[in-house]
Simulated scan of single mutants.
Amino acid sequence: MSRKHLHVVDSSSFELNIPEAELELMEEMISAYEVRRLGSRNHKQKSVSSDTAVIRSFLTFIQKAPWNATTDDFDAWCYQIGREQKVATNSQRKYQSAVQGFYRYIVDNVKFQAAVLDRYNLRIIQLVTEENKIPHVHERQRTNERPAFTHQDFESFIGAIDVQIVEAYKFNSKEFLALQRDKVMFYSMYVMALRNSECCDLNLSSFRSNPNLPEFGDYGFASVWGKGSKGSGPKQRAVAIDHADLPPLLDWYVNDIRPQYLQKPHCDPNEEAFFLTERGSRMKSGSLNYRFKKILGYAGLSEKGFVPHCLRHTFTTHASSAGMSLEYSKIKLGHEYAATTQTYTHCGDEFVNREAVRYAQSIINRLSDDE
């Protein structure tokens, strides 16, 4: 059996042999934790049920109530799922996080802390820390797999589409329409720093004007459904369009290009999807990836390891180099933490050297003023 399909939990195997009073309090804790996540945290039922199964699996393995567990118990459980069950590393970390999240809740819960202290003269402690938990793959290693385009590479990428559009028109190729869509689609992904799914999920109704930028017309903001966190569903955010050359492209696409996709008899004229396939249906991630690879080939960039997600990294890198604040990029990308946004920034040696010289010169100037 493949490692990625191994499961640590089996709901039929939970049998915890502890005193009835302890079992009742434990069940109350787990139930309250589930209610918190499903209610105020708005997490998905599937995610909550999965984590609850892991928590029960852990407690069944150690045969203790949560407040009696020790870090040694947690270590023994980790050894069992890792070395004996040979669960994949990413899954191990997910299970560890499930236990950590539960303990975070009951440690911070005044009611449960008081109940355990009153009945058993104990305090609930957090068992899982970054010291005994599998670390994330180093963020820099992960981002190296998704490099940013240099300015020259990006110009080559967009320029290759323009060249192919001219060629397709000249030879009356069926690629002509697709390439025109591709230019708008991939430039939109760059300017709006969109994920693949966010781009594919755009609708005609996703765009609205920005009162402060009336010259952008109907394309001042885009409403985007992005990834949630820690089991929550997709989250909506407003993405500001901040490049003056994108609104005219979007308007051109909507009025001149997109209608041509809906002219075939089988197409739904009421289709709301913004970017369409040759069949007049919503663009899917697989088709987007295929078109991206094709254009990389036209641009001579196939060997550089680029994927569509690199366009998000490219926006962040170019924005940083231009002096845009990290907080602005964080909000635009829909990141919860600025540290995540920082890993999307791939500033080259020239930028680093320029900033070092600027900073050093400012110190020299200040010292000179003090003399």
Score class of each variant (00 low, 15 high):
Gln100Glu: 13
Gly101Lys: 08
Gly101Ile: 10
Gly101Tyr: 02
Phe102Glu: 09
Phe102Tyr: 06
Phe102Arg: 06
Phe102Lys: 07
Tyr103Glu: 07
Tyr105Cys: 09
Ile106Asp: 04
Val107Met: 08
Val107Cys: 11
Asp108His: 15
Val110Phe: 10
Val110Gly: 06
Val110Ile: 14
Val110Met: 07
Val110Leu: 12
Lys111Tyr: 14
Phe112Trp: 11
Phe112Ile: 14
Phe112Tyr: 15
Gln113Cys: 12
Gln113Pro: 10
Ala114Arg: 15
Ala114Thr: 13
Ala115Gly: 08
Ala115Val: 10
Ala115Leu: 11
Ala115Gln: 12
Ala115Asp: 13
Val116Arg: 05
Leu117Asn: 13
Asp118Pro: 00
Asp118Ala: 13
Asp118Asn: 09
Arg119Ile: 13
Arg119Asn: 15
Arg119Cys: 11
Arg119Gly: 10
Asn121Gln: 15
Asn121Arg: 13
Leu122Pro: 08
Arg123Asn: 14
Arg123Gln: 13
Arg123Ser: 15
Ile124Leu: 13
Ile124Cys: 10
Ile125Glu: 12
Ile125Lys: 14
Ile125Gly: 08
Gln126Cys: 07
Leu127Phe: 01
Val128Gly: 09
Val128Asn: 10
Val128Met: 08
Thr129Glu: 04
Thr129Met: 09
Thr129His: 09
Thr129Cys: 08
Glu130His: 02
Glu130Cys: 03
Glu131Asn: 07
Glu131Gln: 11
Lys133Ile: 12
Lys133Trp: 01
Ile134Asp: 10
Ile134Lys: 04
Ile134Glu: 07
Ile134Thr: 11
Pro135Asn: 08
Pro135Ser: 13
Pro135Cys: 08
His136Asn: 14
His136Ser: 12
His136Leu: 10
Val137Gln: 13
His138Asp: 14
His138Gly: 03
Glu139Asp: 11
Glu139Ala: 12
Glu139Arg: 14
Arg140Phe: 10
Arg140Gln: 11
Gln141Pro: 00
Thr143Asp: 11
Thr143Gln: 14
Asn144Thr: 09
Asn144Glu: 15
Glu145Leu: 05
Arg146Pro: 00
Arg146Trp: 01
Arg146Gln: 01
Arg146Leu: 04
Arg146Ser: 01
Pro147Lys: 05
Pro147Glu: 02
Ala148Leu: 08
Ala148Tyr: 02
Phe149Tyr: 03
Phe149Ile: 04
Phe149Ala: 05
Phe149Asp: 01
Thr150Gly: 04
Thr150Asp: 00
His151Trp: 09
His151Arg: 14
His151Phe: 12
Gln152Asp: 12
Phe154Leu: 12
Phe154Ile: 06
Phe154Trp: 05
Glu155Gln: 05
Glu155Thr: 00
Ser156Glu: 04
Ser156Gln: 09
Ser156Tyr: 01
Ser156Trp: 00
Phe157Pro: 05
Phe157Leu: 04
Ile158Gly: 03
Gly159Trp: 01
Gly159Phe: 04
Ala160Gly: 03
Ala160Thr: 02
Ile161Glu: 00
Ile161Gln: 02
Ile161His: 00
Val163Cys: 03
Val163Thr: 03
Val163Phe: 03
Val163Leu: 06
Gln164Trp: 04
Gln164Tyr: 09
Gln164Arg: 11
Ile165Pro: 05
Ile165Asp: 06
Ile165Thr: 01
Ile165Glu: 00
Val166Ala: 04
Glu167Asn: 03
Glu167Cys: 01
Ala168Met: 03
Tyr169Gln: 09
Lys170Leu: 04
Lys170Gln: 02
Phe171Arg: 04
Phe171Gln: 10
Asn172Cys: 01
Asn172Val: 03
